[in-house]
Nucleic acid binder design. Structure first.
Lengths: 127, 127
DNA sequence: CCCAAATCGATAATGATTATTAATTTTTAA
DNA sequence: TTAAAAATTAATAATCATTATCGATTTGGG
């Protein structure tokens, strides 16, 4: 598993790698628990701090808030998501046209920077 | 401003009316502050309790979590949203095809119940 | 009007996230 | 390499939105 960027501290890289090596769209606590095995002295605050940094840098994105927890995605290629309202699982949906941002908005002085498509329902395990 | 349903208690109706009489996609606290004028003894807990009820009933929808606050929408007709990353304002986008939920998902055993399209960027006041 | 059920206000509890600060790690530059 | 400066971290406390509790109040049916 390779880093997306260099010149990150050891712990910071561990946070990013945990995020990017899963497709579960983890919460901060999930990342924290995942990393704890290899870095027993990691702090939950460090996870939050670095996730905030990654979001500013654009190397990860926020997907949604599920059951009060923000869930993040290490994949930055445009794609949609399916969120299971039963178990909270988030799935990537790549077979989707997430094309041109509609021009209606630009006409009214809105600067669209990103578009998000999310489906809600029951996943195949819960339905 | 008319109620969506009858047989609601006075306070409950006040909460729903506050939600439905604005297009700002309010937070619970916004609703609370709005109602306080007319019902000085309203409790924030009552607002939360009733919003949860309305969501279950489907008379309001959750739009997104912005700056840690859940924002709700009294309009249930399908439409998209624009969220300003600067000021947190949420705008309705009606000129949009939010048509058939894509069949790809159904093939894999996913039961799609709703679809959400959200644009992020700077609104005309912030750009 | 009276009573049972529903709803509410006040308050405490919960839980995620953020801020603080002193200690540790990393980088810089000689 | 090495010492100082800068960046990062662990531990902890603080914040803040939301939820739970529970006794009091309101509401609707008979």
């Amino acid at each position: 598993m390779m880093n997306k960027r260099k010149n990150y501290s050891t712990k910071r890289n561990a946070v990013l790698n945990a995020i990017c090596s899963t497709d579960c769209h983890p919460s901060a606590k999930w990342v924290y628990n995942k990393i704890k095995d290899q870095y027993p002295d990691i702090s939950l605050g460090t996870v939050y701090r670095n996730i905030a940094l990654f979001k500013e840098e654009g190397v990860v994105n926020s997907v949604a808030t599920v059951n009060g927890e923000e869930r993040i995605d290490g994949r930055t290629e445009p794609h949609a998501h399916f969120i299971c309202t039963e178990c909270g699982s988030i799935y990537d949906i790549f077979n989707q046209e997430l094309t041109a941002v509609d021009s209606i908005l630009c006409d009214e002085g809105f600067e669209v920077e990103s578009k998000s498509i999310t489906y809600y329902g029951k996943c195949n395990k819960c339905s």
